[in-house]
Amino acid sequence: MKKNRLFFLLPYSLWILLFVIAPMILIAFDAFTGSHGEFTWSNFVQFFSDTTFLRMTLNSFWYAFLITVITLLISYPMAYILSHMKNQQFWLLLIILPTWINLLLKAYAFIGIFARDGLVNHFLSFFGIGPANILFTDFAFIFVATYIEIPFMILPIYNAICDIDPALINAARDLGASKWQVLGKIIWPLSRSGVESGIQAVFIPSLSLFMLTRLIGGNRVITLGTAIEEYFLTTMNWHMGSTIGVVLIVLMLIVMLTTNRKRHHQEVR
């Protein structure tokens, strides 16, 4: 049995060592070293004293926040309605299907839709507004990012709602709760785990959607992800790139910790 366990464990732990631990150490190492390999805080000092970096971080956070909130607002009702449909499997499939179309293709479609003589501007001109510059704006970036993330928010929420014992909903109705009260007092709190994993699934990638900022945001929108890509692949300053990476990881940890907090209870004597 002992030999057996090692047999299963060995390739897996090798993977952990090489592709999980080593890269993390390397990125942290790069963040804390200068161009000659010496230990230094200077990358972080530079990051936190430069307003462009700080503004970019804040921006990045703000965009990710907006994308997450809008996605949640659209997805929650969707998941709720879906959980009440007949043929749920079919509708679910319809929602998952677009995620199997390559992300780049979908982004590319929006280049056409948002173009100066594209679909949206045709539509706007019809009402006498525009043509407006939509492509390469903040709006376009947020819209497309939301579009891409919606299925990833719907799925965990839908699963959480489906996991709720229908007897609980009957119990609440039995005790006099209206449809909206059932939604607010039973379904919403009990589907929170789904909302939390949805937020995690959307917020974190939203911090790093550099291809969208390039294709749709037209370099006007700079996120942490864009900056990392630029430092690594264009200016080749890996130390600064790693520093931004470490900041991104810390932000990510903060998000994960805040979405996992405990709930509060009414206490009586």
């Binding site: 014992d165 007897a167 609980l168 009957n170 119990a171 609440a172 039973i186 709190p189 009990l190 709930r263």
Partner: peptide, 9 residues
């Protein structure tokens, strides 16, 4: 209810 259906939250 059969399995009590107490609200777990």
């Amino acid at each position: 209810f059969q399995n009590y259906a107490l609200f777990p939250h």
